[in-house]
Computed example of a mutant assay.
Amino acid sequence: MCPVNLNAVALKMKRLLKYFGQCVFCSAILLVLLLFFGCKEEDKTVEDISKVQVDFSVLRFDREFAQAGPNDIPNLKEKYPFLFPEQFADSIWIAKLEDTIQLQLSGEVDKTFGDFKKETEDLESLFQHIVYYFPKFKLPEVITITSDVRYNDRVILTDSLLLLGLDNYLGKDHHFYRSIQRYIAKGLDKQYLTSDVASAFAKKVIKYPKNRSFLSRIIYYGKELYLKDKILPYTLDAQKIGYTSEEMEWAQTNEEQIWRYFVEGELLYSTDSKLDRRFLDPAPFSKFQLELDSESPGRLGRYMGWQIVRSFMEKNDIALEQLLNISADEIFKKSNYKPKK
């Protein structure tokens, strides 16, 4: 069945009925027509995206280094100069070839990712969608590495390179992550890799707000997540935001209560920087300062911003690139957002 946006269909139908009157027969005919042409439009978009040509390569530096010997270091340095800082002598890299931890990391990455075929296909789909919506985007050269589990730098996107630290995606219960806080470790799973790449791209095209209000910041993250809706259409919402399925269900179930807390507490236009730590930054849970805190997932402010942006886009005929430059106040006012009950 075609994934038609029913809210958008309802909005169009409401507009058309102004001209045709409240006729039940007309309503039925209009609904059928809107669903039909909505499917056609969705199908056309999917077809157009599938035709987008993306020519990129994935270089498995992690494997090349794991299989290298001391005599191969000069060739690797020539091929990947940006991965070999000049201040480090060759002896450092030769010693790393035989380092026990490095050998274990390489082995675990190989066990988890194998030939990287599935991930390459996911990246191809992501790049097709990005190029479709952002034709000026230049495809980066993708290079897989091990990074000694530097999870804060697991994905690095520059104008020409995409570095993926695969040792940061071995699964939340991997023994390499035992000393890492659980709320961080749960995101160190390969199911989140493509979503993390999408986040890195989002930072390139969405400006962080100068306005210090809480609303402007939740809308900023809402734009990022809505962008993922468009460039990762086959990815679960939980994966887009970095939640487990249980955390996603909690957010959806409690959306009305979260919104009431934000509104009644007059948080939307507050400039209190502590709100970032409570509702936007990665954390084991959100901080309502209530008994339910321990049950909640972190970053619920981002989730709420996402729902506001979705509501705005359902009610307004705006291109994706236009959305990214619209102010938070305008998005909020024109969203007529009402939480799900």
Rank of each mutant, 00 (worst) to 15 (best):
K51A: 07
E42Y: 12
P74M: 12
G107W: 14
D115R: 05
E78K: 15
T45K: 03
D48L: 05
V109H: 05
P81V: 10
T112R: 15
R60M: 14
Y80T: 00
S91D: 12
G38D: 01
D122I: 10
G69M: 14
G38H: 02
F82H: 06
L76K: 15
I94S: 01
D72I: 14
K79D: 02
Q102I: 10
Q53A: 11
E47L: 03
E41N: 04
A95R: 00
T120W: 12
G107Y: 13
D99C: 10
Q87D: 07
L105P: 06
K44C: 08
L97I: 02
D62L: 11
V58H: 04
A89W: 14
L97V: 04
E121P: 07
S106D: 09
L97N: 02
D115L: 11
Q67G: 03
E108I: 15
D115F: 15
K51D: 10
K111E: 03
I92T: 02
V58P: 04
D90A: 05
A89H: 12
V46D: 05
V54N: 00
T112V: 11
I94Y: 04
D62P: 07
K96L: 08
I73P: 06
C39V: 05
P74W: 15
F113G: 02
C39A: 05
S50I: 14
I92V: 09
P70Q: 11
T120A: 10
K111Y: 07
F88I: 12
P85H: 07
G114K: 06
K118F: 12
K111H: 09
D115Q: 13
T45H: 13
W93E: 03
D72E: 15
T112D: 11
L83N: 03
I73T: 09
Q104M: 00
I94H: 02
T100S: 03
T45M: 14
L97E: 04
E108M: 12
Q104L: 01
E86T: 09
V109G: 08
F61S: 01
E42Q: 10
D90I: 02
E86M: 09
S50P: 15
D90W: 15
F56L: 08
P70L: 08
D48K: 05
F61D: 00
E119R: 14
T112P: 13
Q104A: 02
F84T: 00
Q53M: 09
F113L: 08
D55V: 07
F56T: 06
F37N: 05
K77P: 03
E42G: 05
G69Q: 14
N71A: 08
K44I: 11
Y80Q: 04
L103E: 04
F56R: 11
N71W: 13
D90L: 11
L35D: 00
Q104S: 01
S50M: 13
R60T: 11
A66K: 12
V46Y: 10
V58S: 02
A95T: 04
S91Y: 13
K44N: 04
D122H: 11
D72T: 15
L105N: 03
K111M: 09
A66S: 07
V46M: 01
D43G: 10
F56I: 05
F65H: 06
Q67Y: 07
F65G: 02
